[in-house]
Design a protein around this nucleic acid. Sequence first.
DNA 1: CGCCGAAAGGTGCATATACTCCTATTTGCG
DNA 2: CGCAAATAGGAGTATATGCACCTTTCGGCG
Lengths: 153, 153
Amino acid sequence: MTTANTQSTAVGYPCVCGRLRRAARALTQLYDDTMSETGLRVTQFSLLRTLERGGSLRISALAASMLLDRTALSRNLEPLVAEGLVAIVAGRDARTRQVSLTRAGRARLAAAVPYWERAQVEVSRHLGSPKVANLVGLLKDVEALHPQSGTAN
Amino acid sequence: MTTANTQSTAVGYPCVCGRLRRAARALTQLYDDTMSETGLRVTQFSLLRTLERGGSLRISALAASMLLDRTALSRNLEPLVAEGLVAIVAGRDARTRQVSLTRAGRARLAAAVPYWERAQVEVSRHLGSPKVANLVGLLKDVEALHPQSGTAN
DNA sequence: CGCCGAAAGGTGCATATACTCCTATTTGCG
DNA sequence: CGCAAATAGGAGTATATGCACCTTTCGGCG
């Protein structure tokens, strides 16, 4: 068949998704270990960081920008709201809720940055900057495969 | 400092871990959507597949080979045991439990493979085989960063 | 033999993630 | 204006993941 090489390579590969998930577990451990003193996990760090750059965002908008399920995001926000790092207020459109960083959230984030950087440096040190750049580029391509990502399909 | 360039590039990058997790979410969606008719999620598929190749394994051994927390694995096995796809029996060493595929598990896995291949092909089609191979190689490097991975630290 | 430390797992808890169904608004149209 | 469709979120449920602490069992040693 004409597409034989695409077909056969796909089968010859290990499960790309399994690999990606396994690597994500490994890297998450490294970051969470490195950042443990900050009281933020890397998932929470990423969330706060996105909020820092985005300002006040609707739940769905924030979720979409993270390729994260809307309801998953809501739940991820809960411990951050409980700690007073994030505030959620009703928007002008009463259906919506605006999520934003509090002053405490900004401070916590700033305090966590050096620890996060330590993890980033560790990754660069072991992989080398070219590989990291290569990886990040490939991950962007993978993200485009998200079913709700517009470009895909 | 002498490592100034490593430092600066690390800070210039986005969060590698966040990127990896985001990509993992996106790809997991693609696989789970594609495999939805099989009654297996990609995480379960990977688990059954590892078992198929490994034969009968102890909980901890299986967990280690997947870079997965031992207790997380135990819980991931529960729905598979409930469906009769996986069997867990006590080992000769009474502390241990041997995990293995049942006949039904083998059948379910075989039935799921074509759907899984569809997802793999989709990835190859969008990224191209060279990028996929490149990605898989880089992910292996990332996995080596796992704190319990022996080589790291 | 009896005890102690190591090894293998389990349980409780917390977070991460997504689906389905349900409610509250808003918006558009006759 | 008034109602139906669309939009924004929440709640319930299930899986995914990891930590801290506990129990059981095994192995070695005096």
